[in-house]
Structure formats: C-alpha cells, structure tokens
Simulated scan of single mutants.
Amino acid sequence: MRTIEPVAKFDLAFSTFCLQHRFNQQVANVSKAISHSGDGHLYIVIGLLAWFFDGLVGQLFLLAGLIAFAIELPIYWFLKNSFKRRGPEELSALLPAFITPSDRYSLPSGHTAAGFLMATLIGAFYPALTEYALLWASLIGVSRILLGVHFFTDVVIGALLGITCANIALSVTSGVS
C-alpha cells in the first residue's frame, strides 16, 4: 500500500487546490452542465443519429459503440467494486461535493470512461471531429474533479479505460463492412 501513498497524497492535494477557492460554486455550476452531457443520454442520441443519417458508416459507428460499452461497463463495475476507493468528499470534510455521486466509489470515473470511449469512436469514424470530441471528453473528466466527486487519477484511469474499450471495439468491427 505504501507505493500508492504518493498518488493518494497528490490526488488529495490536487482536489484541495481545485475545490477550495472563492469561485468554486460558479465553477461547479458550469461543471454540472458539462458533466450532465456525459450522463449517457447524448451518446445514445449520437449513435442513433449516425445510424439513421450516415448509412453503413453510421451503422458501424453504432455497432462499435454498442460493443465498446458492452466491454467497458462490466470492467468499470468490476474496478469500482474491487478498488472501493472513496471520493474526495468522503476523504476530507473540507472538500465540497457539488453533486451527489452517481455511485458509491470513485475509481475509475465512469463519466470520463464513457466520454473518452465516445471521443475515440467519433475520431475513428469522423476524423474531422476528433479535436472537438477529445476536448468534450476532457472537459467531462475535469468537471468531475471540479464537482468534487473524483480525484485526478480516477479521471485518468477512466480515460484509459474508455480509450482501450473503444479500440478493442474498433478492432472487432474493422472486418465488418
């Protein structure tokens, strides 16, 4: 356990820096809107719109998304319930949480995983949108920190999980056409 102590200390210091300032309520208001865009509803809409309007490419995009989420969700739940890492609001009474977390544990960030999963797929199927999709996913991750429900490493591991699952799904669907 001593090997993760420096990481835990960094996470707590970073969260303290992000959450203990006089503008934290204003930042949280913006962060709530950004975080809400990563709740999952928008991903369904994007997949269905691609399927409906973009022929075979849209169908493959939707298929890759379904496969990626079918891979990501069980891994996400396994990791959450294995690590059982408490979030910033539980570890320090001084740190505010501006929303109620969507689940009990903080590692990995599911919102970030889903955001980077979608950004990776969007980048693969619609390369002109790559920068926007990655910016959006990054903002979702940052918003989770600024809302006080995740640590920095929760977000990084969530991003890696999402990218990995999207790439697995892309390799599975690469032969389909």
Rank of each mutant, 00 (worst) to 15 (best):
G87C: 09
I140T: 00
H150E: 04
E131S: 12
L48W: 15
I145H: 01
W51K: 10
L66G: 15
G65K: 00
G47E: 11
L129P: 01
A50M: 15
P127M: 06
I157L: 15
L160I: 14
A113G: 07
L147E: 00
G123I: 03
A119S: 07
L95N: 01
L129W: 10
L73T: 10
H41N: 14
I44A: 14
A133L: 06
T153G: 03
A133I: 03
L56P: 08
I67K: 06
P88L: 11
L73S: 05
L60G: 06
A70R: 10
I75C: 08
W136Y: 13
H111S: 06
K80F: 14
L146S: 00
L160N: 07
V45Y: 12
S82D: 04
A113W: 00
G47Q: 05
D39Y: 11
W136P: 05
R104F: 11
S106H: 11
A128V: 14
L134D: 03
L117M: 15
L170D: 01
A159L: 07
T164G: 04
A119V: 03
Y105I: 09
A64C: 12
K80L: 10
Y105Q: 06
G55S: 11
H150G: 01
I168P: 00
V156A: 14
S171D: 07
A113T: 13
K84C: 12
T164M: 10
V142N: 06
Y76K: 05
W51A: 12
P74Q: 11
S82V: 09
S174G: 07
S174Y: 10
A93C: 13
F52G: 07
C165T: 15
R104M: 08
A119R: 02
Y126T: 08
L95T: 09
F116S: 02
P96S: 05
E90L: 14
L147R: 02
H150N: 09
G58Q: 03
L73A: 08
I168R: 02
V149M: 02
G58H: 00
G40I: 09
L139D: 04
E89G: 09
V142I: 15
D54F: 09
I163E: 01
G87H: 02
A169G: 05
H111C: 05
L49G: 11
H41D: 13
V156R: 08
P108A: 01
L139P: 00
L42P: 00
L107T: 04
S102R: 13
L121D: 02
G162M: 00
V45K: 07
V149H: 00
T153A: 11
L91I: 15
L91E: 15
L160K: 12
E72C: 11
G148I: 13
S92C: 13
L129V: 04
D154M: 04
A64I: 12
G141C: 12
F151K: 00
Y105R: 07
A97Q: 13
Y132L: 15
G58N: 06
L161Y: 04
D103P: 01
V142Q: 06
V172H: 07
P101L: 11
P127F: 10
K84P: 06
F151V: 05
C165Q: 04
L60W: 01
A68M: 11
I168C: 05
A93G: 10
A128S: 12
